[in-house]
């Protein structure tokens, strides 16, 4: 059983530190390589999205990422003070267009929905709160 919190500034360069922390967390709890991969990718996509689109230009803020592990269950809670955004309402990605017209928008959230087992969004006061779970017993 374990828990850690990482706080990052809303700058894209912080993604590397966040992912390094999530990888360290994964190794500490002897999580399988595939689970560490999925956790890192999903944190990159969700937090990267918040940093890229959540704030007015020049605004400085901090994002809190809490990671927990107990009994085959990885839990993630991301809280930010960015503008309200529910990733679960984001449009589906383009998975069918040919090369010439293929678009990437929505792909990161598609990765998160595919790789995590539960995602719950809430707007709490002036914060977005995204809670995610991944069950290792589910096979991946």
């Amino acid at each position: 059983m374990g828990f850690t919190e990482v706080r990052v500034r809303n700058q894209m360069a912080e993604i590397a530190r966040l992912v390094a922390e999530s990888e360290r967390f994964g190794r500490e709890h002897a999580l399988p390589a595939s689970a560490i991969h999925d956790l890192s990718l999903v944190l990159d996509e969700i937090v990267g999205n918040i940093i890229a689109y959540g704030f007015a230009p020049g605004a400085e803020s901090e994002i809190s990422i809490k990671l927990g592990y107990a009994q085959g269950e990885i839990s993630v809670e991301i809280e930010d003070e960015a503008r309200p955004f529910d990733p679960l309402q984001a449009p589906a990605p383009d998975l069918t267009s040919p090369l010439e017209t293929r678009r990437i928008g929505g792909l990161g959230i598609h990765f998160a929905r595919s790789l995590m087992d539960e995602i719950v969004y809430a707007r709490v006061g002036n914060k977005n709160r995204l809670q995610m779970k991944k069950f290792l017993s589910a096979g991946t």
Partner: peptide, 20 residues
């Protein structure tokens, strides 16, 4: 490579179109 984000896929798509 440990992982590729959607931004990385965007880079690959752009390169793929350019070589075409």
């Amino acid at each position: 490579i440990l992982y590729i984000s959607s931004a990385g896929f965007r880079s690959l798509l752009i390169a793929r179109k350019l070589v075409d």
